[in-house]
Design a protein around this nucleic acid. Structure first.
Lengths: 291, 291
DNA sequence: ACTCATACATGCATTTTCGCATGTCGCACA
DNA sequence: TGTGCGACATGCGAAAATGCATGTATGAGT
């Protein structure tokens, strides 16, 4: 009893994704091949690994056992590729960078441009997402993150501090100034769906008008004059048609970090990109805090 | 940058064995295939993994890095196969047993026979060696060992206690009795190449005549009348033409254990074999200690 | 009831991988 | 200096793995 490692990898992919087709997409294989590899693994191990259900493959108990161990192998494989990447002292090949969507336009794109001009042989792939990609699993090499901590096992450098404040369309701002006692209508973020406490103290008749799950949409809504939004300073300042309103005084906000896995940290591409970010943010600190 | 797991496994095998041919033998592949997989891995990773030397392949620094990580994957794979084996509740298929060569004839063979009669669908493979096979790496499923401890991470049951004593050919025994003051000539084991202390106290003019590195050869030498040998009681008694001589009084010797990896311990085949050994040794305890 | 989408099974042609035979190189030994 | 051995490189036919096309089953939606 023994089995080929690639078949184990395939079993893991199927156990994770639940269907042959999805596993095949993960592995860059046709799902037919995936099915056959699963069969081979089952024959080699002499056990059934999956229940064939109408809506896909579901791992049996033993299939789960195999998948659990294969996942550990997968972690080791990731460790290997990270270590190799950490060794890589060339400025050629691919570099995967991830950053929060809204930070990219104003403050990452310029560094990207500078980097790719100076190192044209590096192919930069930018993943613009608010999801925290898994740097352990090499979903990205380097991440720019807005966070209070650099992250568990990752290495990081703080790029700058930030403040948040309240912003609104010019028309709304004027109305607030003209009628200081009128109710303040907020558009708030789903993850903290209340009027900020400090604002409530200053303007007791503030109220939530809408709850959004997306900050870009909130900027749009603020621009359209739907209400007041709490957002990081840099974002309000960079958004056309918005102005800061004194409903919420500037308050601390999560810092901006550049982070990478410790294995990958010393690689030339990561090091170079990182060292280009630092001075840029240093020279633009005034975009992020109230002057 | 990424690579197939099977190619990593191949790189590991080459790094371990140093030549394509030996790695191929390990993996059950033709060495040509091994060479090609190494090439593929190098291409996929974009680095050189081996120095091509006239007498084989030697891993580069990066090759060593890859091999180190692949070895961790290999450990996980071993863990997987052990876990599967531990789950196996059938009494079919292969069971690999290892035991010290000299214990097999008198005390393991009978149990082997009994087991294979009761469970004819189990193919027992016996590895007769004094080397400690690596049960982590599944070189054997179950081991009978003469040792003071069951072994680090292994599970074990003590089969019986043992004593050692001095044995010699009948002619030598007679001479010892007739001439109690004549020098006693010993054949000693390389691993403790001295006359046993207790014997030296009783017979101060004992001396080492020969040093052997193999216990079977020592038995033969004793039978040929070359001298006195300290050996486990069971061995002296089971060896034609030897008799116990009072030069060395019976003294404690390492116990006999049956051990297995904890993962494999609960499997039906291991459990059944183990449970057959226990009563057999229990009923033959008098072969191992002086009555 | 019918249609559509999803997911898998199966047969066949193609591509890739594999093993064997042969050739080269370096080294030890006579 | 020649000879034999061990180890690898290379070319070619055989074998295996792969992808594509087609067919079947199930469940959702109309």
């Amino acid at each position: 009893m023994s089995a080929e490692w690639d078949d184990l990898k395939t079993v893991l992919a199927v156990a994770r994704s639940g269907t042959l087709a999805a596993a095949g997409a993960d592995l860059g294989l046709n799902y037919t091949t995936v099915a056959r590899r699963v069969q081979r693994a089952e024959a080699a191990l002499g056990v059934n690994l999956f229940h064939r259900l109408p809506d896909g493959y579901r791992a049996t108990d033993i299939g789960l056992l195999v998948a659990r161990h294969a996942a550990l192998m997968d972690q080791q494989a990731d460790g290997l590729f990270r270590a190799l990447q950490g060794q890589d002292q060339t400025l050629r090949g691919r570099l995967v960078v991830t950053a929060p969507q809204l930070l990219i336009g104003p403050h990452v794109a310029p560094v990207l441009e500078q980097f790719s001009e100076q190192h044209p042989e590096v192919e930069v792939l930018l993943r613009a997402t608010n999801d925290l990609l898994d740097l352990n699993r090499r979903e990205a090499d380097l991440a720019i993150r807005i966070s209070r901590t650099p992250g568990d096992t990752l290495m990081g450098v703080r790029l700058c501090e930030q403040q948040a404040a309240s912003f609104a369309a010019k028309s709304v701002a004027k109305r607030l100034k003209d009628y200081p006692d009128a109710p303040v209508e907020w558009i708030v973020y789903e993850q903290s769906p209340k009027v900020p406490k400090a604002a409530m103290e200053l303007y007791p008749n503030s109220k939530v008008r809408m709850v959004f799950d997306d900050m870009a949409a909130m900027v749009g809504a603020a621009q359209a004059g739907l209400g007041v939004v709490r957002m990081p300073m840099f974002l309000g300042r960079a958004s056309e048609g918005l102005e800061q309103v004194p409903v919420l005084p500037p308050q601390p906000y999560a810092d901006i970090w550049v982070v990478a896995h410790r294995d990958v940290w010393p690689s030339a591409k990561v090091k170079t990109f990182r060292e280009m970010l630092v001075p840029w943010f240093k020279s633009h600190w005034d975009c992020f805090v109230s002057s």
